[in-house]
């Protein structure tokens, strides 16, 4: 049985906006490595400042970025 997780929907949002991870990295000034960690669900926590920059660059709400996955 897998644990419930918070998933960062970066993949979907990037696809919808036809944007690459490198482009997003340049816009939000977060390294591609750290964005990959977020995208792949390996991050333990996310700062409000990071969330704000991502929402700003992707023109979305925090709720659009995060999703709670039940097992």
């Amino acid at each position: 049985m897998t644990d419930p997780t918070i998933r960062v929907r970066l993949d979907e949002l990037l696809k919808e906006r036809d944007m690459t991870l490198t482009e997003l990295s340049n816009r939000v000034q977060i390294t591609v490595v750290n964005l990959s960690i977020l995208k792949n669900g390996h991050a333990r926590a996310i700062r409000f400042s990071t969330l704000m920059r991502l929402c700003d660059a992707l023109d979305c709400q925090p709720g659009d970025l995060l999703r709670y996955d039940r097992p």
């Binding site: 977060i30 750290n34 960690i37 977020l38 991050a43 333990r44 926590a45 996310i46 700062r47 990071t50």
Partner: peptide
């Protein structure tokens, strides 16, 4: 430290 390092 690991908690802090894993915070993006």
């Amino acid at each position: 430290l690991e908690e802090t390092e894993a915070t993006i």
